[in-house]
Each structure stands twice: as structure tokens, then as C-alpha cells.
Amino acid sequence: MFRIVLASTSPFRRALLDRLGLAYEVARPAFDEIAPEGLPPVACARAFAEGKALSLAAAHEGALIIGADQALDLDGELLRKPASLDEAADQLGRLAGRAHALHTAVAVHAPPGLPLAPGEPRTLAEVVTVELRVRPLDRAQIRRYVALDRPIGSAGGYLFEKHGPWLFDDVRHADETAIVGLPLVPLCRLLRRFGVDPLGLPAPA
């Protein structure tokens, strides 16, 4: 089996990937998250996930590389990840009382030595979209939450994997792993296309 590299240093993504029982390495992607002007949020999530995986291809030539990213979509507008607590509070202020879409993309890049089916690309990706509605919040509530979770660099200015569920009235999707940042069912689907399947061994007699 080929080595697997997770192009992320997020402890939350690592905790999710641990659930699959695969041996893997972790590396920080050499990728700048700069979205081209006018790129739709869903396309941005996919491009960033693919970009993170591809950024490590040269340094990890013999590995399957997993990249993932998220983009928050507020009525078609991409909200960039907050770089400070003030920006996180401002984003939550905009989201309060409103619905938004969180697009989470996962990509897997295959090494040159892995044989593929005819026409199969070496980089595969899927995007999962979750619809969330933030409950009405006043400025004091937002400030208390931001101080609690310090969600700098997190799409929307919240961390669902920590105290974030207190912020929401409704979440519409069956896969909570997508909200955290690494949708496991699509990831397993992509890995199987590259031959990684712990259940693919013959059943014992």
C-alpha cells in the first residue's frame, strides 16, 4: 500500500482521519489560500483542497496525499477566514439570525507509480455542502463565544468541533465530519478509487 500524507496540521482533521484506522503522516501544505476574484465559494473550496494536496506532491513523490478546505457561502458571497478575533466577531455578527452554506472539499492526489484506470485523473475531489442557520446573537454573546473558542482562521468565525453548536438553530446535513473539515464518507470513496480499502481483503473462511 502507498504511504498516505494528510496535507494539514489541524488536530481536528487528524482526529477524524484517525477514525479510519489508516497509517498516515502529517505535513503542512505549501499553499497560499488566495482565491481568484469572482471564484464562487464552492469552486474555491475545491481549488484550495486540490491545491493543498498538489503542493506536497514533489516532496512526497510516493504517497497518496489528502487535502481539504472549507469555504463559507453567505448568499453567494465568499467570507474569507478571519485573521483576528475582531474579524471572527464581525463575521458572526453578519451570520447571526441567517442561514449560510459551508462547502467542505476533500481531494486525494495519487503518486505517479500508482496505476490508474484509463482516463482516471491523478487528483480527485468532492465537495460536501452543509446548510446551517445561526441563531440570533447580540454583540455580547458573540464576544463571549469568540473569547471562548478563539476561532481565528476558521471559516465563518466558529469552531463546530468545540463550543460552536451553541451558536446554531439548525444544521441540515447527515455528515457532521464535513462541518469539522474532513468529510469521511467522500474521502473513503476517493481512497477506494485509488485502491485503498481495508475491507477489500477476502473474508476469512
Rank of each mutant, 00 (worst) to 15 (best):
L191S: 01
G51P: 03
P151A: 07
D149R: 00
P198G: 05
F160H: 14
A203G: 03
D73L: 01
I179N: 09
K81A: 06
P82A: 11
A110G: 11
V130D: 00
V196M: 09
P29M: 12
D18N: 08
V108M: 06
P40Y: 02
H103S: 04
Q70P: 13
G181I: 01
R144N: 06
Q141V: 08
R14T: 05
P186E: 10
G195T: 12
F12M: 11
V146S: 10
G93Q: 03
Y145T: 12
P29Y: 08
G97D: 11
V108T: 05
T104N: 05
T9I: 07
R98C: 09
L92I: 06
F48T: 03
V134I: 14
L72Q: 01
L16G: 06
P112I: 13
L16I: 00
P186I: 10
I179C: 02
L72H: 00
S154Q: 08
F48L: 10
R3V: 01
C188I: 07
V130E: 01
H173C: 13
D169L: 11
Y24L: 06
G200T: 02
A101G: 08
A30C: 15
L124Q: 03
L20I: 09
A27M: 14
F194W: 03
A101L: 13
G76H: 04
R192K: 15
A147G: 06
R46H: 01
A125L: 08
P183D: 08
L102S: 01
A155S: 00
D86E: 14
P183K: 09
T104C: 07
A35E: 13
L20E: 13
A110K: 05
P198L: 05
D138E: 05
A49I: 07
E87L: 12
A96F: 04
R98Q: 12
A27L: 15
E61Q: 15
L16F: 07
F48R: 06
G200R: 05
Y24Q: 05
L137Y: 02
L39H: 05
A89P: 00
S154R: 04
Q70T: 08
L182P: 01
Y145D: 14
D90T: 14
L72T: 06
L124T: 00
A47M: 06
L167I: 02
L102M: 02
A147Q: 08
L190N: 01
E120S: 15
L199T: 11
L85H: 02
T123A: 02
S10E: 03
A140Y: 04
S8N: 08
L56Y: 06
S8W: 09
A68M: 07
S84L: 10
G156W: 09
E37S: 08
L167T: 00
V42Q: 14
R28C: 06
G93A: 10
L95M: 07
G76W: 07
E161I: 00
A68C: 15
E131T: 00
